[in-house]
């Protein structure tokens, strides 16, 4: 369980305030909010790249607030996936294990297992610049999951993908969650991602956590209104066009 209490971050004129937030084991928390409200700052503070002015970040009652990023066990996946361009896919996935000085044979076994799980076994010898967006994302997920992190921090993971790939990856991530059970914080401003993936949705606005809701609660809040209006607009338009039945392929 991750507990965030009275967190206060100051970056120039920008401030971020999280009074109280608990993320349970194996929970998938989606953090929503418009652009520039501090969602990435929140992730970077959790990861240890930004030191808060006040507050506490705990994992199972262990205080991590002042721990450096490498000692937190929080694996981050940035918007552009952050693959190491000079390494092959294999080396990228193995990176965290090599750092932990795991036995070579064990690394090989694990990398192959995770590559299979992510359906990227055929890409292991390739360099990141030869991969598609979806492939890069699977590599980033494998690299993060293989170290069995306490939590995975995903920063707008689908924003660089085209719509068809996004739908595919949403389905893939949902299946992966069922298979592997991991705790995650997923930052997005996309309501579809939030409703599809979230166990709960935290809403941040103007640098402040406004509340944490289940998806069904969230759609009825004032915060969801602009997103719901957008969805309704699409729905109405589809109806006008006579499209009542759409098959979603994942």
């Amino acid at each position: 369980m991750i507990e965030i209490k009275d967190l206060y971050v100051e970056l120039g004129n920008f401030t971020l305030k999280i009074d109280n937030l608990i993320i349970n084991e194996n929970e998938y928390l989606v953090v929503m909010g418009p652009s520039g409200v501090g969602k990435t700052v929140f992730l970077h503070t959790l990861a240890g790249f930004i030191k808060p002015k006040k507050g506490v970040i705990r994992y199972n009652n262990i205080d991590l607030t002042m721990e450096p990023p490498e000692k937190r066990g929080f694996a981050i996946i940035p918007q552009d996936f952050g693959l190491f361009p000079h390494m092959t896919v294999y080396e990228n996935i193995a990176f965290g294990l090599v750092i932990r000085k795991i036995d070579r044979n064990r690394i090989d076994e694990l990398v192959k297992r995770y590559a299979e799980l992510m359906e990227i076994s055929h890409l292991l010898h390739r360099k990141p610049n030869t991969l598609s967006g979806g492939e890069k994302q699977r590599v980033a997920l494998a690299r993060a999951l293989i170290i069995k992190p306490r939590i995975i921090l995903l920063d707008e993971p689908f924003s660089n993908l085209d719509p068809s790939l996004r739908v595919k990856m949403l389905g893939f991530l949902k299946r992966l969650r069922k298979q592997l059970r991991f705790t995650a914080i997923h930052v997005t401003h996309d309501i579809i991602e939030a409703l599809e993936l979230a166990d709960r949705i935290a809403y941040i606005h103007r640098g402040e956590l406004k509340g944490v809701f289940t998806p069904s609660e969230f759609v009825n809040t004032q915060y969801a209104k602009p997103y719901m209006n957008e969805l309704l607009l699409v729905y109405k338009r589809l109806k006008q066009l006579g499209i009542d039945n759409v098959n979603i392929v994942t």
């Binding site: 990861a47 450096p68 990023p69 937190r72 981050i76 190491f84 990176f95 965290g96 750092i99 170290i147």
Partner: peptide
Amino acid sequence: DESIELVARSMGANRLDTFVKI
């Protein structure tokens, strides 16, 4: 890209490892 260095740190690499390997 600095985010690559941040990813390496979050994967468990300390500053020195990140500098040398990334």
